[in-house]
Amino acid sequence: MTVKDFKNPVIDFDRNNTYIQSEGINQDFGVYDSPDELLKEHHQEMSRVKAFLYRNWGRHMMNRNVRKIRGK
């Protein structure tokens, strides 16, 4: 199921696929060891402020969360 109209979503649960953004997924980037490895290959443009925050805070938090999820 895909929500095509966010103002009027279908709310009937019929025990099937509940992805609300399945049509928005248009590319599989595969599996990476860490967010840093993914973003080395698939980086995105961002402002200097966002780049600074990502470099000094965001990436550390993401990598920590991935390690925690993977039990490393």
Rank of each mutant, 00 (worst) to 15 (best):
M1W: 08
M1P: 02
M1C: 06
T2S: 01
V3Q: 00
V3K: 00
V3S: 01
K4A: 09
K4D: 09
K4Y: 11
D5R: 05
D5P: 12
F6H: 09
F6Q: 02
F6I: 07
K7H: 09
K7L: 13
K7A: 07
N8S: 14
N8E: 13
N8W: 09
N8H: 13
V10S: 00
V10W: 00
V10N: 00
I11M: 15
D12K: 02
D12Q: 05
D12A: 03
F13S: 02
F13H: 12
F13P: 01
F13Y: 12
N16I: 01
N17A: 03
N17M: 08
N17H: 02
N17G: 03
T18R: 07
T18H: 08
T18P: 03
T18W: 08
Y19P: 00
I20K: 00
I20N: 00
Q21Y: 07
S22F: 02
G24Q: 00
I25D: 00
I25A: 03
N26D: 02
N26L: 01
N26H: 00
N26I: 04
Q27C: 12
Q27N: 12
D28M: 04
D28A: 11
D28F: 10
D28R: 02
D28N: 14
F29T: 02
G30N: 01
G30R: 00
V31S: 07
V31T: 08
V31M: 05
V31Q: 06
V31L: 12
V31F: 07
D33S: 09
D33L: 07
S34Q: 09
S34V: 06
S34K: 05
P35T: 08
P35K: 06
P35N: 11
P35V: 10
D36R: 14
D36V: 06
D36N: 05
D36T: 12
L38W: 04
L38C: 03
K40F: 13
K40S: 15
E41K: 13
E41L: 12
E41S: 07
H42G: 02
H43V: 08
H43C: 13
H43A: 15
Q44I: 11
Q44A: 13
E45P: 05
E45H: 10
E45K: 15
E45L: 10
M46E: 03
M46V: 07
S47T: 15
S47E: 05
R48A: 13
V49G: 03
V49W: 02
V49E: 05
K50T: 09
K50Q: 15
A51S: 13
F52Y: 05
F52G: 01
Y54K: 03
Y54E: 06
Y54I: 04
Y54M: 13
R55E: 15
R55G: 04
N56D: 07
N56M: 11
N56K: 11
N56V: 09
W57C: 15
G58K: 01
G58D: 03
G58N: 03
R59Y: 07
H60M: 11
H60A: 08
M61T: 08
M62N: 10
N63Y: 12
R64Q: 11
N65V: 04
N65T: 05
N65A: 11
V66E: 13
V66D: 10
R67N: 15
K68S: 14
K68L: 14
I69T: 10
R70Q: 15
R70Y: 10
R70F: 11
G71M: 04
K72Q: 15
K72C: 12
K72S: 15
K72R: 14
